[in-house]
Amino acid sequence: MQLNYEQISQIEHYLKKKGVYYEDIKIELLDHICIQIEALMSSGYDFNTSFEEIVEKWDPMLSYSSSFYLGYTYSKPKIIIDKMKLRVKGYVYKTWCIILLFLTFIYFTGHDIAVNNSQVINIFSLSFLYVSCIAIVAGYFFIRKTKQKTSYRFLYETQILPILTVPIILSNSILNKDGNLDLLKFMLLVFIVIAIPFGIELFKKHVEISKKYSDYETIE
């Protein structure tokens, strides 16, 4: 049995009330709930009874939660947190592995290391850093221009945009006052090398979702 416009509108309002407003997840959940309600209605239940029964099953998954992987300051429906956690897990693992590796290396060798052509390395590294920051800003302006809210946009804003603070931390140099390579600062650059591909992936996914649902009219 096919649901009508008003019935779909009621389901969408339920999702909106629960805080599900990312297009990629909202449409996915809307489809799942509609299919489940249609299945019950095909068994002889009316819409209201079917809706209440399905909503009761979905309520625990739409209760608010948070995660270490995304930052405990962000609280969202559990199903959204779980989906985004899966997307960011690999990136978080790589980042922490790099941090622990560098901290271990620093513990045994010191906070800096002498290198040949340190000034050349410094200029090259800073050039890479600023080009990366410019690309991140340009990507975010494009994302904002789409005006679509997706889980990929949220991850871009919370996991990639903070990279823009790195130039401030580095103080325009990855060298220490003796002209040697500062390993703590170099670690930040390595972190960016890991973050950039992840940022590109998030950007591409957001654009893909935005194009897919650009003609979708949200039911108010």
Rank of each mutant, 00 (worst) to 15 (best):
F128P: 10
I168E: 11
S132P: 01
Q36Y: 00
S214V: 14
N176L: 06
Q2N: 15
Y216K: 12
A114Y: 08
L15Y: 00
W58R: 00
L129W: 04
T109M: 10
H32M: 04
T150C: 04
I79D: 01
Y140M: 07
L175F: 09
M41T: 01
Q119C: 06
I99E: 03
F108T: 13
L155K: 01
L164P: 00
R153G: 14
L15T: 02
K26G: 02
L40M: 11
T158C: 10
M61Q: 14
I11P: 00
P77T: 11
K177D: 14
S214Q: 14
L40H: 05
G139V: 03
Q10R: 07
S63D: 14
K89R: 07
I25A: 05
K94N: 12
M1P: 13
T158R: 08
E201C: 09
R87Q: 07
Y107V: 13
N176Y: 04
E217Q: 09
S42K: 15
F198K: 01
I121S: 03
K147A: 11
S171V: 13
Y14W: 10
S210V: 05
L15Q: 00
N117D: 12
Q10S: 11
S173W: 12
R144D: 07
E23K: 09
I98P: 01
L189W: 05
Y69T: 10
E201R: 08
Q148S: 14
L189T: 05
Y107Q: 12
D215K: 15
I163K: 01
D59P: 03
F198G: 00
F203A: 03
Q159K: 06
I33C: 05
D82L: 11
I136L: 00
I35D: 02
K57H: 08
Y152K: 05
K212V: 11
G90Q: 06
F141N: 09
I79W: 01
M84Y: 04
A135L: 13
T73V: 13
E28S: 14
N180I: 09
Y130W: 10
D215Y: 14
P60K: 15
I163Q: 08
I209Q: 02
F141W: 08
K85N: 09
S214P: 03
L40F: 07
K211I: 13
P167G: 07
S132T: 04
L188Q: 09
I143T: 02
S214L: 10
T95C: 05
N117Q: 14
F47E: 00
I80R: 05
I27E: 15
P77H: 08
K177Y: 11
K205R: 15
K78A: 09
Y72C: 11
Y93T: 11
H13D: 04
V207D: 04
E52D: 14
S125I: 03
H111A: 10
H13K: 11
V190L: 15
I98Y: 06
Q10H: 08
E220Q: 14
D112M: 05
Q10M: 06
I80C: 11
C34A: 15
T104E: 04
A135R: 02
Q119G: 06
R87N: 07
F142I: 15
V137H: 02
A114P: 07
Y140C: 05
L86S: 13
S75H: 13
